[in-house]
Simulated scan of single mutants.
Amino acid sequence: MAGWNSTDIPDQTGRTAVITGANTGLGYETARALASHGAHVVLAVRNLDKGKAAADLIVRRYPGADVSVQELDLTSLQSIRAAADELHTRHDRIDLLINNAGVMMTPKQTTQDGFELQFGTNHLGHFALTGLLMDRLLAAPGSRVVTVSSNGHRFGSINFDDLQSERSYSRAGAYGQAKLANLLFTYELQKRLAGTDTIATAAHPGSSATELGRNLPRVVEWGFGLTVQDAEMGALPTLRAATDPTVRGGQYYGPGGFLQMRGYPKLVSSNKRSHDTAVQQRLWQVSEDLTGVVFPVG
């Protein structure tokens, strides 16, 4: 029996999906698949020209596809708030928020608000965006927040004493911390959504050929090359977490092959650290303090 794939996506007509980082790679493949099944897809991107080019490509491939572009820079809280305001104006409800955009193993840098780049972009930016759009998600029956993590969460830990890597910086360590934060956020959000018709899920793409790996050390890039799959396959765990009717809140999906590096998506497990409830709650409070965004749930 073949594994779950894009042909298993239910009809998405009448549903609105906001996808961050949707102009290329996993985000583009996610947007393309949802648009081809009838969703109105919003490409939330930093570069408007690239976003418009991606939207045009989807429409050319699927005439009649409903695709729009929203400027969003996850390294800027000001940009995140502006994007959320525009999305509020255009949409009374949002059925899917897919927190896909990210950076990986970058040289030491900071966001416009002074956060370490990987933690600030991958976690804090999406935390703020989700909180600011939560009322629109709660207005949509059966809505979902899907946050894209990584196998990299397995070597991550949350260093509350040096959250912004000001004392010492490791590309891999900062990436692992950010990807672990994605899961801690998902699990805590799901608890806070109890009693609502909205759920939080997570996914990871395994080893996928995208621009995200451009900062990988050469030896690591070579190792990934032995197991890499294309972005279309890499997007399937996100698509399943977003659309499969059997998915439940707090679940995590990834490739079903060797070491979760490639293959069709299935329900997978995350490490013990990601299920530490005390860390989940502390990270949530720190994230609210840093971003100034307070969720209207929980």
Rank of each mutant, 00 (worst) to 15 (best):
F224R: 13
L132C: 09
A139Q: 11
M233T: 14
V59M: 13
Q177H: 08
L193E: 05
W4R: 08
S170V: 09
L132I: 09
D135A: 14
A278W: 02
I9A: 10
G263A: 03
A200M: 02
L96R: 05
G156H: 05
T121A: 12
D244Y: 10
R15V: 06
D197M: 13
A83Q: 02
S149V: 01
T147Q: 06
R171G: 13
I9S: 07
M105P: 09
T201M: 01
D161H: 03
L212K: 00
S165W: 10
V67A: 00
V293P: 00
A82Q: 12
E86D: 14
D113L: 07
L48P: 15
P10C: 06
Y253G: 01
Q109Y: 01
L184K: 01
S208K: 01
D162E: 02
L290N: 12
R214F: 06
D244N: 12
Y264S: 15
K108M: 03
S76D: 09
R144V: 07
V103R: 06
H123Y: 07
S287R: 07
Q251G: 03
Y252H: 13
G64T: 03
S6L: 08
R144E: 04
A209K: 15
R214C: 10
Q229E: 05
R60S: 15
G21L: 12
Y28M: 06
V59C: 14
Q109P: 05
S269F: 10
Q12R: 05
H123C: 08
Y175G: 01
A194H: 10
G250T: 11
G254S: 01
S269N: 08
L96A: 06
H126N: 00
D49Q: 15
L74Y: 09
G292R: 11
S207F: 15
H88R: 04
Q12L: 06
L290E: 09
A139W: 10
G263E: 03
G114D: 12
D276A: 04
H204F: 09
S170Y: 08
G14C: 05
A172N: 10
A54C: 05
T227W: 10
F258W: 14
V286N: 05
I158G: 04
L43G: 04
T89C: 09
W222H: 15
T227R: 10
Y169K: 04
G14R: 07
A235K: 08
A231S: 11
N100D: 02
A128R: 03
L77V: 04
Y169M: 05
R46G: 08
A241G: 05
N47A: 08
L97C: 02
D244I: 10
H88Q: 07
F160Q: 07
Y264E: 14
D244S: 06
N159P: 05
T227D: 11
R46Q: 11
L77H: 10
Q190W: 01
N99Y: 02
T227A: 13
M261G: 12
T89V: 12
L26V: 00
G195S: 11
M233H: 15
L117Y: 15
V69P: 14
V297I: 10
Q109V: 03
A82E: 13
S269V: 11
E211P: 02
H40C: 08
L226R: 12
